[in-house]
């Protein structure tokens, strides 16, 4: 199986000498093609830092990160932009849809940036819209639709260009449970059907239970990992809660 993401000895420290704070401490991690990986951990554990580094928005202090065969640590700014555009898809907690564009235009933006022909764009958008069930809101503007619809639109944008890796940062954070379930089911279905590789940072055990594998980090280190295997989602959810309990301080968030 092909390895999509490979992180070797990734360290990240903030601050200057004498007042240093280690956000990530020697992280080693690999994600295979077609995986749906959840990253969990208490606040301040380094989840977001890790995601930012994988997103190429932030750079590690040391270590190596290879995504789809490209070492992103050595790339310059312009190349990184191209890389983000071609290889990565993002889903953010606060949607990050552009309010001057319709839902459809938001979704097709990555394709437009890559200068894909208009006919092909049209076809892609229709396919994706069906996957996420947002066909009827395509011509609306973001401020006319609900949070759940916004997040599904954002997810559509993330995958429209067939990225090697989809990075989701607390995608259900601002959604009610029904919308959250719908989004997670869509992502899960996408993962199953298209073998899309998804990495999702969350502190919601329910969201994490949709993943095939959950990695826990604490104080900037890998703490442990769980694989769903043949477990039902409910059983997996139970296991996740247990780990969170041992991590401590996260029970409240998990409920």
């Amino acid at each position: 199986m092909k390895t999509i993401l490979q992180a070797k000895n990734v360290n990240k420290t903030f601050g200057t000498k004498g007042n240093q704070y280690t956000a990530l401490n020697n992280i080693n991690l690999s994600i295979e093609e077609g995986e749906f990986v959840g990253i969990m951990g208490p606040s301040g554990a380094g989840k977001s830092t890790l995601l930012n580094i994988f997103s190429t928005i932030d750079t590690p202090t040391s270590g190596e990160i290879i995504i789809d065969g490209h070492n992103i640590v050595t790339m310059n700014e312009e190349k990184l932009s191209d890389f983000r555009r071609n290889k990565l898809g993002f889903i953010f907690q606060d949607y990050n849809l552009l309010d001057t564009l319709t839902v459809k235009e938001n979704i097709l933006l990555p394709l437009a940036l890559s200068k894909v022909p208009a006919a092909e764009i049209e076809q892609r958008v229709q396919e994706i819209a069906d996957t996420f069930g947002i066909r009827e809101i395509l011509d609306k503007y973001p401020y006319h639709i609900s949070g759940g619809q916004k997040q599904r639109a954002a997810a559509s944008r993330a995958i429209v260009a067939n990225p090697s890796l989809i990075l989701a940062d607390e995608p259900t954070g601002a959604l009610d449970s029904k919308s959250a379930t719908r989004l997670l089911e869509s992502l899960s279905a996408l993962n199953q059907a298209n073998r899309s590789t998804i990495m999702m940072v969350t502190h919601d055990a329910n969201a994490a239970s949709y993943c095939k594998r959950v990695i826990f980090i604490n104080d900037g280190r890998l703490f442990m990992e769980l694989r769903k295997g043949d477990l039902s989602r409910k059983q997996f959810f139970g296991q996740i809660l247990e780990v969170l309990a041992t991590l401590g301080g996260e029970e409240h968030d998990a409920v």
Binding site: S55, I57, E77, E78, S81, D82, F83, R84, R85, N86, L88, F90, F92, N96, L97, L98, D99, T100, L109, P110, L113, R157
Partner: peptide, 15 residues
């Protein structure tokens, strides 16, 4: 905020 989003989804500064 809009340009920040664009930056995140891979728009080059030159663009």
């Amino acid at each position: 905020a809009r340009y920040l989003i664009l930056h995140k989804i891979g728009v080059k500064k030159s663009e």
